[in-house]
Amino acid sequence: MDDNHLIEELRNGNEDVIKYLYEHLPMVESWIQANNGSRQDALDLFQEAIIVFYRKVREGDYSHDSRISTYLMAICRFQWYTILKKKTKQQESFAQINLFSGQDTGNSSGEPKISQEELSLPSRESYLKNAIEELGEKCKAILEAAIFLNLKMEVIAQRFNFANAQSARQQKLQCLKRLRNKVSYEYVMSLD
């Protein structure tokens, strides 16, 4: 599918065209594999790059003349360098520990270290997520469009059949109020 066509479709909310983006995945895979990564790493990075791309397009903020593939590749490259650097840091700390225990690290795959915080993530995560999930479908859709996709109120008004941007905003604020009422201020503020 032609790049411009794909962007146009995506901008109009036709998400299905995302599947065509995966045609660029093999390119990312071979690059990541040549740079000490696995196919799974490549897929993860690629999905993240799609999310960045998708949001830019939906927000109407995508303006690149180079091909989508070039753009996705550049994001993956950038992210992978960032991750490699973090991995190296972790391996350094592994190496230090293992120096004393006299063992080889043998951890070339760079399995990330898990901290206590990460192990206890789910309960923290699920608290707010459950509250969001409990909202009505319409509220969820509005919050997703307004906050996650950062769509303009005018666009939301059109999509959800509100009279105007102002009433769309009022609906958004109503939904947020419902969400606030579902959760405890003290608990939310104690997170992170």
Partner: peptide, 9 residues
């Protein structure tokens, strides 16, 4: 809350 909606989305 906004942050969480982002993550959720």
């Amino acid at each position: 809350l906004y942050k969480e909606i982002e993550v959720w989305g």
